[in-house]
């Protein structure tokens, strides 16, 4: 089939079956039900298969458009920029990877910080971009999310973080690890001030992102079928030398084991947030 191809995820720490399918033309093939979908229909349906409700990955920008009233928001922190603190080099220079990711996404790093109105209520939203070096978290992502949490504290404004990340970014070494502590320290303040925080876990959310802010919402919700975990499936398989059970580390698996508050279809997320924030904020 010439009209679709698998998109490569060059350094995904948890490789899996490619879930992103891109068309050259007007069709996209659903990886779950194998039906050919009109791209336009798919887009109108928020990137959810019109036949089987499979959730395609969508960009951080698109997520913000979907949540904010009239798709309008203001960005902050977009100028923050990684100077490659370790001068990291593997088979390829990290500086080159960064430059390429910046070029393809139009972002400086793997998250967008936005402020705007959601159903008429002021909210702050951080949306992670999984196309930027697997959505991994280095100093810039750590700083931006911390900024958002601090802004939420300062303005007494509810916070929503949409995660899509392979975890802490190896190329910034221990700096990346410490971003987990930095963000969680800010979240401790938010928590004690009783300012609402809803965490939305999307495909994929793993490693240091799951093991820090993504699991610390007042509500932790996920889209259907998202890969969510601490260790990547391959690492676990190699460690325990066992086949992993079917559906392991998918949203439904996590909810069954008590790790998620709800699984929410993308088309209902705005409504879910509206009602939750109402519960938290309205007197």
């Amino acid at each position: 089939m010439a009209w679709f191809k698998k998109e490569k995820q060059p350094i995904a720490p948890t490789p899996e079956e490619a879930r992103v399918v891109r068309t050259e033309g007007l069709f996209t093939k659903c990886p779950q039900c194998s039906r050919a979908l009109w791209k336009k229909d798919l887009e109108d349906n928020l990137g959810v298969c019109t036949k089987c409700s499979y959730h395609f990955r969508i960009s951080a920008r698109r997520r913000l458009e979907l949540l904010f009233d009239e798709g309008r928001y203001t960005e902050y922190g977009s100028d923050l920029f990684s100077p490659d603190p370790l001068g990291f080099h593997d088979k390829r220079a990290y500086a080159d990877r960064l430059q390429e990711a910046r070029r393809t996404t139009g972002l400086n790093d793997a998250v967008i910080n936005a402020a705007g109105q959601l159903s008429g209520r002021k909210v702050l939203v951080c949306a992670m971009e999984s196309n930027f070096i697997s959505g991994s978290m280095g100093c810039v992502v750590g700083e931006m999310i911390t900024l958002a949490v601090e802004k939420a504290v300062e303005d007494q404004t509810p916070l929503v973080i949409i995660s899509a990340s392979g975890g802490a970014r190896m190329h910034e070494g221990t700096f990346s690890l410490m971003q987990m502590a930095k963000i969680c320290s800010a979240l401790a303040r938010l928590d004690r001030l009783r300012i609402p925080y809803v965490s939305i876990l999307t495909d994929p959310t793993t490693g240091g992102v799951t093991a820090s802010f993504a699991m610390l919402g007042d509500l932790n919700i996920a889209e259907p079928g998202a890969l969510i975990g601490f260790a990547g499936p391959r690492v676990i398989e190699q460690t325990i030398r066992q086949k992993l059970p079917k559906g392991f580390q998918r949203s439904e698996f996590l909810m069954e084991r008590g790790m998620l508050d709800a699984i929410v279809d993308r088309r209902q997320i705005k409504d879910f947030l509206t009602r939750s924030l109402c519960f938290f904020c309205d007197r």
């Binding site: 977009s78 990684s82 100077p83 139009g106 810039v140 700083e143 700096f175 410490m178």
Partner: peptide, 9 residues
Amino acid sequence: MGVIESRAP
């Protein structure tokens, strides 16, 4: 903790 610069995207 972290090393960050500022530059327009």
